[in-house]
């Protein structure tokens, strides 16, 4: 057991409770407008196409492409100091919205096909992405 401080936990929010429940089950869920079917993320109250507030929570395909990334070399929260350097990747999901996840793979490029992988950690589920081809093999 190390004395690494715990990662920050997401503050509870009624709007996004279903999202976190999904991640804990190993599913990436997106809000889909119950009226017009447009998906949205991060969770918010209204559909900005039709202003309806009803949603269905639908599992994303998990497929996407790299939009951008950064490699953290400095820890602004002590929980991450032992993980340096670590990579955060922004992904265009197939459904349209984006997601931010951790990346444990190699070199990144805009447009690289990736797929989601959810790792259950002590502080909660961690959204990760990995190269799509490697996961398919």
């Amino acid at each position: 057991m190390t004395d690494t401080p715990a990662r920050p936990e997401p503050p509870p929010s009624a709007l996004s409770a279903a999202y976190w429940e999904g991640l804990r089950r190993g599913e990436l869920l997106l809000q889909v407008c119950a009226n017009c079917g447009v998906p949205r993320h991060y969770p918010r109250l209204l559909c900005c196409e039709c202003y309806h507030d009803g949603v269905h929570w639908c599992a994303a395909s998990g497929r996407g492409r790299v939009h951008s990334w950064t490699v953290a070399h400095y820890a602004y929260h002590p929980a991450f100091a032992a993980e340096l350097p670590y990579t955060l990747v922004t992904v265009d999901l197939e459904e349209g919205p984006r997601a931010l996840g951790r990346w444990y793979g190699g070199a990144l490029a805009i447009g690289l096909p990736v797929r989601v992988r959810i790792v259950q950690r002590e502080a909660g589920p961690e959204l990760c992405f990995e190269v799509a081809d490697a996961a398919a093999s």
Binding site: P10, P11, L88, R102, E126
Partner: peptide, 8 residues
């Protein structure tokens, strides 16, 4: 704070 800070 909710979706990105927990990832670092």
């Amino acid at each position: 704070t909710e979706f990105e800070h927990p990832l670092g």
